[in-house]
């Protein structure tokens, strides 16, 4: 299975969807910072892995898939839920990579702050790709 870009998807989304995601992302950043200042970095750090825009993204995926199927005269509700479920499964595997990101910052930031962020970003990408490949192979075997 080859990873590819599907640019036509951009035509399906409207401007308010991007505004909602920008707003939710911004608010989560502010919230995480405020919690860290009020209750300390140990509590604030938890919110760096909060599924902030997951609610909006999953709803959009469900809606787009439903409309696409209904335009073809098919029952779209179930297909929309399945598409959102597939996205959630991907996020589950991606959370392993997110944990590696946090691990890199935790272990490296005290000695080399800037390098820790670079290592964390590279670590996230590598582990995310490996997790996806592992998932693909496991599904092929089962």
């Amino acid at each position: 299975m080859i990873v590819r870009f599907k640019w036509s998807v951009l035509k399906q989304s409207s401007w308010y969807e991007h505004v909602v995601r920008f707003g939710l992302g911004g608010l989560t950043g502010v919230f995480a910072g405020a919690v860290a200042q009020r209750y300390g970095p140990t509590t604030g750090g938890l919110f760096l892995a909060f599924p902030a825009i997951f609610c909006a993204s999953a709803t959009l995926i469900e809606e787009h898939e439903r409309k696409r199927k209904e335009a073809k005269g098919l029952q779209g509700a179930r297909r929309g839920q399945q598409a959102a479920a597939l996205d959630a499964a991907g996020a589950g595997w991606g959370s392993i990579a997110l944990g590696v990101f946090g691990l890199c910052v935790w272990r490296l930031a005290p000695t080399s702050p800037v390098k820790s962020l670079c290592a964390a970003a590279i670590g996230w990408l590598v582990v995310a790709l490996l997790a996806w490949e592992l998932r693909r192979r496991l599904r092929r075997v089962s």
């Binding site: 919110f47 996020a91 589950g92 959370s95 944990g99 946090g102 930031a109 702050p113 820790s116």
Partner: peptide
């Protein structure tokens, strides 16, 4: 600084388990 970010990173590992 780095020590503060490291504490946030440690909690992020826990947060990512919750995300899973």
């Amino acid at each position: 600084g780095g020590q503060y970010a490291a504490l946030e990173g440690r909690s992020m590992v826990i947060g990512s388990t919750a995300l899973a």
